[in-house]
């Protein structure tokens, strides 16, 4: 079993009204030094494989076809190395 985490964020040139609203809320809580907030989405996936390279390639395909909208979003994939039990 391999675990992968995907983080999807809006691209830099896409306005993020949610992030602006969260930033304003933080400011009203007294955190005036927060200059920018961007809101994204994280996915934790568990894949039934022991091949990290294949897992990453598969997850990237999933991102491009469903998990992210490539018009407005970018994504990062982090793949955890297989556990000792998994390798055995």
């Amino acid at each position: 079993m391999i675990k992968a985490r995907v983080v999807v964020m809006l691209k830099a040139d896409v306005m993020d009204p949610q992030g602006v609203a969260v930033g304003q809320a933080l400011e009203s809580l007294g955190h005036g030094h927060v200059k920018k907030v961007r809101v994204g989405r994280a996915f934790d996936l568990e894949l039934d494989t022991n091949d990290p390279a294949q897992a990453e390639a598969d997850v990237r395909k999933m991102c491009e076809s469903l998990l992210a909208n490539m018009v407005i979003e970018k994504f990062e994939v982090t793949v955890e190395q297989p556990s000792a039990a998994g390798v055995a």
């Binding site: 809006l10 896409v14 306005m15 993020d16 009204p17 949610q18 609203a21 909208n69 018009v71 407005i72």
Partner: peptide, 17 residues
């Protein structure tokens, strides 16, 4: 239609939220 790629571009939340 945008998500399906039949039309170009994408939708994001209203500016006003």
């Amino acid at each position: 239609l945008l998500e399906a790629g039949l039309l170009p571009g994408a939708m994001v939340r209203n500016e006003s939220l």
